[in-house]
Simulated assay, not measured.
Amino acid sequence: MTKRRRGSPAPTPAGMRPRMRVLLTALAMLLPGLGLAVGALAYRWHVSSEADRLRAGGVPVTAYVSDRAGGGGRGSGIDRIEVSYLYGSKQYSTWIPCAGGTGCHRTPGPKMAVWVDPAAPEKFVAANGHTNGSLSFLMSWTAIPAGLVFAVLGGVGVVLVIRTRDDQWA
């Protein structure tokens, strides 16, 4: 075992230079951050266009509100309702957000109109504007800024690595 001299740089794992470690860390923040921000925007666009398509060409069906959960206080989760409907002699049931960003102040009535996709009956848009995909974590408005923060931090790291010389990392 050789002793390291005082003041000499510490050995790096697997011979990786500090510059490369910083670059990999920056890329590990930049790429998922961009993916999260772009993915959340794209998913919101997809859900919105799916809702428009179903309002125009879906089959109107009466759904029943069978349960309500969440939204009771800070940190209690999304205020959501369970809707069930019958289409083509088959029962479908899923949870959707209760209302807009403020949630529901009371449980909606026992019935709700939904428009069902005849080709894929599990897909629908409810009268409150939410679809069967509205509870995805990508629908959270915080996903976009969180992704952008990580992307910016990673981008700054990449720029710093690119703009500095090798001899500054020793």
Rank of each mutant, 00 (worst) to 15 (best):
W95G: 06
W95I: 11
W95S: 09
P97F: 04
P97W: 05
P97T: 04
C98F: 10
C98V: 07
C98W: 09
G101T: 11
G101H: 08
G101A: 12
G101L: 06
T102C: 00
T102W: 03
G103M: 09
G103D: 05
H105C: 01
H105K: 15
H105I: 11
R106F: 01
R106D: 02
P108F: 09
P108G: 12
G109I: 06
P110K: 14
K111Y: 13
M112E: 15
W115S: 09
W115K: 06
W115N: 04
V116K: 11
D117L: 04
P118Q: 09
P118D: 06
A119M: 05
A120K: 15
A120I: 06
A120M: 06
P121S: 13
P121F: 11
E122V: 07
F124G: 02
F124W: 04
F124V: 06
A126P: 09
A127D: 13
A127I: 00
N128K: 07
G129Y: 05
H130T: 08
H130N: 15
H130Q: 15
T131L: 07
T131G: 03
T131I: 13
N132W: 07
N132K: 03
N132E: 15
N132V: 01
G133R: 12
S134Y: 14
S134R: 07
S134F: 15
S134A: 13
S134H: 08
S134L: 09
S134N: 13
L135V: 05
L135N: 11
S136C: 10
F137Q: 10
L138H: 08
